[in-house]
């Protein structure tokens, strides 16, 4: 679909664009947002590159490899088209990650639970860059993550995989910090249950 759209429309190069007023170094989010609202291509690309890894990474872990690009593209479309209504109640990053989590969970609900992240998604993952003490651990964790209820997966991805603070997670998920902490505890417990028979054993463990 994307290919067809791209083919059907004139390439961006021949379209006249608003003249860029973006300074070489953007002072803050406000300038970037203002420039994106004016439709300045360079600012939009800058914003995209600033957030692409995390947006794609979150979507990838929550919806799986096969649909991650579609969801991430949808998120950026919502971001650029929604910036006009973004009132700065939260940080730009929080707002974008909230859109990402909501788009991912909505996508899963639409797709139906039976098709949640499959084995194919796990098989496509590149090998870990460094040798670990348990070489199979990463792939087992990926498998357990994929088997987790989507809500638990979201909190684990935000806090443990992406390394966001409880305060940031709570703002993204629109819940209290305490709720976020208890959800993380339950999610990790569920992961331990799933991984238990698979034998995650770290040095010093007695079982």
């Amino acid at each position: 679909m994307t290919e067809t759209l791209a083919d059907a429309l004139p390439p961006p190069a021949i379209l006249a664009e608003p003249r860029s007023r973006v300074p070489a170094q953007l002072a803050d989010d406000a300038e970037l947002i203002a420039a994106c609202r004016r439709g300045e291509a360079r600012a939009m690309e800058l914003l995209y590159h600033q957030f692409k890894r995390r947006v794609f990474g979150m979507a990838h872990r929550i919806v799986g490899a096969s649909d991650a690009e579609e969801v991430a593209q949808e998120v950026f479309v919502r971001v650029f088209r929604g910036l006009a209504n973004f009132r700065g109640d939260s940080q730009l990053s929080t707002w974008i990650y909230r859109l990402t989590v909501n788009a991912s969970l909505s996508h899963l609900a639409k797709r139906g639970r039976r098709q949640e992240v499959g084995d194919d998604g796990i098989a496509e993952l590149p090998a870990p860059p460094v040798a670990e003490r348990d070489p199979g651990l990463a792939s087992r964790i990926e498998a357990a993550l994929a088997a987790l209820p989507a809500g638990y997966r979201a909190i684990l991805v935000l806090h443990d995989v992406e390394g966001l603070s409880h305060e940031e997670c709570a703002a993204i998920l629109e819940c209290r910090v305490g709720t976020c902490k208890s959800q993380l505890h339950k999610a990790r417990g569920k992961m331990r249950e799933l991984l238990g028979p698979m034998g995650v054993v770290a040095p010093g463990a007695n079982r």
């Binding site: 794609f56 964790i141 770290a202 463990a205």
Partner: peptide, 19 residues
């Protein structure tokens, strides 16, 4: 110990390449 290994394992998951 299990939970610590899990937490470290999640943090160390390889980042997905953006297409």
């Amino acid at each position: 110990t299990d939970e610590a290994a899990l937490r470290d394992g999640l943090r160390a998951l390889p980042a997905a390449d953006v297409p």
